[in-house]
Design a protein around this nucleic acid. Structure first.
Lengths: 239, 239
DNA sequence: CGACATATTGATCGACTTCAAGTGTAGTGG
DNA sequence: CCACTACACTTGAAGTCGATCAATATGTCG
């Protein structure tokens, strides 16, 4: 159940058997939820945090006029709302963007974990810091990159994140987002996203159809995107 | 030295005298640095984290073509690079945007703190989570709001953050950012920032000259900005 | 005062939006 | 097996917000 989470953590630092066991013990039974379901609701005060085991989720913000912005994506092995453990109220919703399998850890158990396992606590803390680093890269993309470069960057990021949890095969990964949803991620219109995706295809950088992306030219794609994976902290580093 | 940090923490949860003392003990002597100085450098691997005591700092990203994006601002009482404690390398620089006074906490001391003071650890962790929540609000602003609303939101946010650390007086606070720097925060051009600021003035929402902002019409300003302070977690909430 | 950054204004440009059709394609029920 | 529906994708045309370019104030600090 926590295999992919462990893959991610162990890329960065050693996780002892005791720590892995302590973490595994926390997890509630798995649940399946359909695409579109809300895993956590804006304004709510959850008593547990959700671990994503399979599928894709997004942090969704709804504006007054109904406009939608997605401020983050999560892949298998991510805690999608670990922050709700330490924040009073959700400032956004977490929505399943595809059919998902999830588990959860109760906040009172997490609290105990922070008392008993300081090193593991630091590792979990660091995953939330990487989330923030991803947010910053998105800000750079929205603020200072062209729609094309920003989109390319998102593809690079998704590729890198999924590779860590062993979900890339033959340079191909699942990315089950409609162009409309993608527009809400990138802060663009669906029409423009369509044109940008077409250009990425025409340039021979990716193959992309029905929720599946194949990287065709990684060097040119990362160059276009100005993708530097430092922020994903894929190196080993004792915490 | 840590007064403003304590103001911020105590707004959210109780901090015992022992905890406050443990925190105070960590802090290295104060230092003054001039506007423009780099407090932490992209790519570096700091051995300590910086607490901002006075002044304004920003997280600066530089792109290939020299373009600049500022992905975060910090005010007195904020740890500007607490994340460097748990991340291998800085993915951006932290720059003093005005003359600043800073202190620092060594990472090895912070590590000890996480072992001895789980509750205080959770409180520090939560400050980094609020940082991330601020990133998300900026994403919403950049992606889905007009330049005017986005700018108004930044003013509201800055007002709310500074109020917590007692740096608002007669609805007025220091905001020593040039319009060029502001453009790098908002992802706009300096020319357009100028026009947006003029419109905020013309609408009677703010007075704003030479690095000082006075709020003239809070209800209309927050309305325009769609500002909902939930994400700043200004409520009490046992951690 | 001279020098240099910052603010302001006007004119033109362009990336992305909006609006409006039209084209798959998958699912559903008769 | 074929209507019928629903939704995602695609394309074209026109519009707009904010960028860019360029010139002129207005500080502000040695």
């Amino acid at each position: 159940m926590i295999e992919r989470l462990l893959l991610k953590l162990r890329l960065r630092d050693r996780v002892s058997e005791q720590e892995a066991a302590a973490l595994a013990e926390l997890m509630q039974p798995m649940r399946r939820i359909p695409a579109g379901a809300e895993i956590a609701v804006q304004g709510a005060h959850p008593q547990e945090s959700t671990l994503l085991i399979r599928g894709l989720t997004g942090r969704v913000h709804i504006l007054r006029d109904g406009e939608r912005q997605i401020s983050g994506l999560h892949v298998a092995g991510d805690f999608v709302d670990l922050h709700s453990f330490l924040l009073a109220r959700m400032d956004h919703s977490v929505v399943a963007l595809s059919a998902c399998t999830i588990s959860a850890a109760r906040h009172e158990d997490l609290r105990r974990l922070t008392a008993d396992h300081p090193h593991l606590t630091r590792m979990l803390w660091s995953t939330t810091l990487i989330d923030a680093a991803i947010h910053r890269q998105w800000l750079v993309g929205m603020g200072r990159k062209s729609a094309l470069a920003q989109t390319a960057h998102l593809i690079c990021e998704q590729y890198a994140r999924l590779k860590v949890v062993d979900l890339v095969e033959r340079e191909t990964f699942q990315f089950p987002l409609s162009q409309g949803a993608l527009a809400d991620v990138l802060g663009l219109s669906a029409v423009h996203v369509n044109r940008v995706v077409q250009e990425l295809r025409a340039e021979g950088l990716v193959r992309w159809r029905s929720g599946e992306v194949e990287i065709l030219d990684w060097p040119r794609l990362t160059g276009l995107a100005q993708f530097d994976p430092t922020y994903l902290q894929l190196e080993r580093h004792a915490l």
